[in-house]
């Protein structure tokens, strides 16, 4: 029994949530039902982007050799490197936490610190699929101005992060892995 729990410890929240949700529906507990509604809404978003994300990550991992990544978006890459990561980020979909596994991959493939954080910035705020929805709801003017204002700021953050981490030990870990390396 103890062994069973330690083996499946990662699933404890999911299991607890599933039990509580079933109970909420059986007992007619409304907060539980409301929470389940927003859970499914977020789940739909995740399910729509995750396969796409993994296809990109998978292809990227297999097809693009490390040397090429290092050359184009590695430490010494300039404006062209920035443009490339921004473009890469814009072509993707999903919420910010979906970008972390990609950041790990970029890091492993030798992308520069600056470009990793510029990637995160571009991913979070100017993805093309999201811009499409944004234009639909808030208009082209709003989206365009927001994009143009955001762009220099998250590129600036990339430079700042690079400076901040210059003399520090920086690594991106595979956060999905159960056993972490020494932290």
């Amino acid at each position: 029994m103890k062994k069973f729990f330690s083996k499946h410890r990662g699933y404890i929240w999911v299991a607890a949530y599933a039990v509580l949700t079933v109970l909420s529906f059986v007992l007619g507990f409304n907060p539980g039902k409301t929470i389940f509604t927003s859970f499914t809404q977020s789940l739909v978003e995740m399910v729509t982007f995750v396969p796409f994300l993994f296809i990109i990550v998978g292809l990227f991992d297999v097809w693009v050799p490390k040397e090429r990544i290092q050359k184009h978006i590695g430490r010494g890459s300039g404006i062209k490197g920035i443009a490339l990561v921004v473009l890469l980020a814009m072509l993707q979909a999903g919420p910010l936490y979906g970008a972390f596994p990609v950041a790990y991959l970029l890091y492993r493939k030798g992308a520069g610190i600056r470009n990793i954080f510029i990637y995160l910035g571009a991913f979070s705020s100017i993805k093309i699929p999201m811009l499409g929805i944004e234009i639909g709801y808030l208009g082209i003017e709003f989206s365009l101005v927001r994009t143009l204002v955001s762009l220099p700021l998250f590129i600036g953050i990339g430079y700042l992060m690079e400076r901040y981490l210059k003399n520090r030990h920086f690594e991106v870990r595979d956060g999905g892995q159960k056993k972490e390396a020494s932290s």
Partner: peptide, 15 residues
């Protein structure tokens, strides 16, 4: 590996 942390986040978000 990624699914579990994502599911946990979704639960937290909805709460």
């Amino acid at each position: 590996n990624v699914l579990l942390p994502f599911l946990n986040i979704l639960i937290l978000i909805s709460v």
